[in-house]
Amino acid sequence: MSILAQADINVLETACSPLNVLTELTCAQWQWLRSPETGLIMVRGRAGGTGVQFNLGEVPVTRCALRLQRDSHLSANGGAVGSTIGVAYVQGRNVRHAELAARLDALLQEPASCERIHTHVIEPLAAAQAARRDAAARKAAATKVEFYTLAREAQTPGNTGEEP
């Protein structure tokens, strides 16, 4: 769910487009439990990073929930029997993003589709996300200061404090 939520919507659409993922997304029997809705989540922090909680500010979030009906035409009583619920909470205001994430969340819980979605959607998205974070972290790492000292003593941080 984290990977789906943090995916770029265009990348997510592209990941869903090949093979039978899209077919599965569109052909399955879907029923909204909660149609997409955009609202706010209050983000909290902690004083000093570890202390009392406080409200930092809000972030827009779009959420939805739906039910995937499995073989509903064969099941006489339909209903909850043979159904899976997909849920999405996605940062931002993109309704399509939340909808795709919720559908994929449901399909990922289905043994029949889980592996396929993992291979074609989740893994590439996770790899792209990891690559993006790695690139940013390596650019930051290139700005790390290497201090030159004539004699570099092994010191613990506790006794190297210097006047600014």
Partner: peptide, 28 residues
Amino acid sequence: LPRLGVSLPIDTGAMRLQRRISATYKDV
């Protein structure tokens, strides 16, 4: 917009750093 809820407190200790400096310790 409606308020949908609150987040867990963010963990700044696990921040994916872009910048990090200290004026109190050189070799941190």
